[in-house]
Amino acid sequence: MKIMPCPLNGPRNISEFVYGGEVTPLPSVESAPDKAWAEHTFYAYNGTGVAREWWYHTPSGYWFVAERHRVSDEILRTYDPSELPSDESTPDGETC
């Protein structure tokens, strides 16, 4: 079984976790046009580099962030969302 290093619970089987999509900044609820919402909702990173993703540990109800390589499936880093950098750029400087 593949192991996910959970920042809260330590290493656990990946079947205990749910993938929650790419970490992207939310468009402004007040001013963002429809196109920006469409972009946010439907256009996710689908490249071959490292992606920053939301993951959820089902038994403990805990959301966190994982940086995972989209080809090798290697999980490079996991951390609590409070540690997210404020500029929200993706790893490798890739624009998603």
Binding site: M1, K2, N13, I14, S15, Y19, N46, T48, A51, R70, V71, S72, D73
Partner: peptide
């Protein structure tokens, strides 16, 4: 998501 055709036990 993944670009890999590996097999997984789970």
């Amino acid at each position: 998501p993944l670009y890999n055709t590996r097999s997984s036990l789970e």
